[in-house]
């Protein structure tokens, strides 16, 4: 059962990185398409839309951080992982779920707002900061999910 515990913990880390990464890839792609349309007509707005395109990419980073935290916790990076019971493994898996799920959905939701922001930049470039703020609001929930996942991981005692 010791191997099952470790396996569940690794699954948790993998899910956090996987779902957040998928969400970000999809999100950055969505905004990228919108941004490319604008740049094709007005290349001078490239920098302004690049910032919007980056925004849904942060969830991927948060998923990566969560996965690294798990790997540190179970001492996987040192090459001598701790022995975990299946319940301990399950606890780590559960701790990773907020980041995995919120990361995926928030990245796509944020991308939709950022893609709409590209239209704002197209018509009123001076209002770019407002488009960014609107999109950044979605980020709040990804950050909260990251905090919860990390707090869970750090507070688990074994």
């Amino acid at each position: 059962m010791a191997n099952l515990g470790l396996g569940l913990a690794i699954l948790g880390a993998a899910l956090a990185a996987l779902f957040s990464g998928m969400g970000s890839a999809k999100g950055v792609g969505i905004v990228g398409e919108a941004a490319a349309g604008l740049v094709s007509e007005d290349p001078s707005k490239f920098t302004k839309v690049l910032i919007l395109e980056i925004l849904p990419g942060t969830q991927g980073l948060y998923g990566f951080i969560t996965a690294i935290m798990v790997m540190i916790k179970i001492k996987l990076l040192s090459g001598a992982p701790v022995e975990l019971t299946w319940t301990q493994g399950l606890q780590i898996l559960a701790a990773c779920l907020p980041m995995a799920l919120v990361g995926y959905f928030s990245a796509i939701a944020q991308a939709k707002v950022a893609a709409s922001g590209v239209s704002v930049v197209a018509k009123k470039p001076e209002q770019q900061s407002k488009a960014m703020v609107l999109s950044a609001m979605v980020e709040t929930y990804a950050v909260l999910a990251l905090l919860i996942s990390i707090l869970f991981i750090l507070r688990l005692n074994f």
Binding site: E41, S119, K123
Partner: peptide, 16 residues
């Protein structure tokens, strides 16, 4: 709907 994102942004630029 998302397939038109490129076109919509290009058109927005032209709306100016």
């Amino acid at each position: 709907n998302r397939d038109y994102l490129f076109a919509v942004s290009a058109i927005r630029a032209n709306e100016l």
